[in-house]
Amino acid sequence: MSLVRVTQSELTKLFSTSIWWILALVLVVYAGGNAAILAWVFGASSAGSLPGGSAPDIPAETIPPVIYSTASAVGYVFPLLIGALMVTSDFRHQTLTPTFLATPRRARALGGKVIAGAGIGIVYAVVGLAATVAPGAAIFVTQDVPTALDDSDTWALLGRVVIAYVLWVLVGIGAGTLLRNQVAAIVVVVGFTQLVEPVVRTVGAFLDGVRDATAFLPGAASDGLVGASIYSTFAPPAAGGVDLAWWGNGLVLLGYAVVLMVVGYVASWRRDVA
């Protein structure tokens, strides 16, 4: 079976289930809700109208990139999950057996998942950006905060969010290829991204020996690729540390995807299907 046919088959399998739109719906609610709340809080703080009167003075021009980047800063777990599920669902429901029978070249079968994953990553990026940019910009208008949607830098940031989403799907495919078990993959993905890495990055901000290493964690690389994040923009600058260009951070994130897929292919993908 050609790579095009394999990719079409992967897309058919993905869109014939409900998990892709359920995750997309949760992404809209989660990322969109965060963006709306933060846009109101930061906008009100910038305008000096936040209740309490003790809020920090936030320059208005720094707010839009942070809000728009919420799509990746808090929403990256969703493309990561869909990537992992694209692989582990095949193992769980034993649909990988007919896939390998139709496509004996397993590298080609994995390649079809990668191409299909890149496509769903773009779809999720559009959904995530729509969920964050639309409410954020609408709230900015009511608070006299510039939306920055006429700024080329803003559109460049949105484009990098799309790249980040695609890379996160590929990381998820790599994780799924290596782990195989769906429950284990979900636990590891959610546990690492929502617990382990945030703790390590927080600790690293206070320890010189750890700070440089945290710049190479996948979440930190994603934030660096996009160029803005709620977790780093308003944080006090750390002395020293690694400062990569956006494309360098993208290569770090791509490196995670490649390493996971290569190790998964050698250790797991070529094994007999149970």
Rank of each mutant, 00 (worst) to 15 (best):
V169W: 02
V162W: 01
V262T: 10
G219P: 04
Y165T: 01
A228H: 14
G128L: 11
P236D: 15
A130Q: 05
L170S: 05
V263Y: 03
V187Y: 00
T154I: 02
D151W: 02
A185H: 07
P198I: 11
S232W: 03
R211E: 14
A238M: 09
V188D: 07
Y165L: 00
A164L: 00
V258W: 01
V263R: 05
V189F: 00
F140M: 13
V187E: 06
A205G: 13
V171G: 06
V199I: 15
I173C: 10
I186T: 14
Q194Y: 05
D153Y: 00
L178S: 11
F216I: 06
R201Y: 00
L129G: 09
G172E: 09
L167T: 08
V196M: 12
A213N: 05
Q182W: 02
V161A: 03
P135G: 11
V262Q: 07
T147N: 14
R160A: 02
W246Y: 13
S229D: 09
S232F: 03
V242P: 05
V133E: 14
G204T: 10
Q182G: 06
V203R: 04
N249M: 00
G248D: 01
S232I: 11
V183P: 10
L195H: 07
V166S: 02
G136M: 11
D151C: 04
L129A: 10
P218A: 06
G248Q: 04
L254C: 04
L178V: 08
D151R: 14
P198Q: 08
W247D: 01
V190Q: 12
R180A: 12
A164N: 14
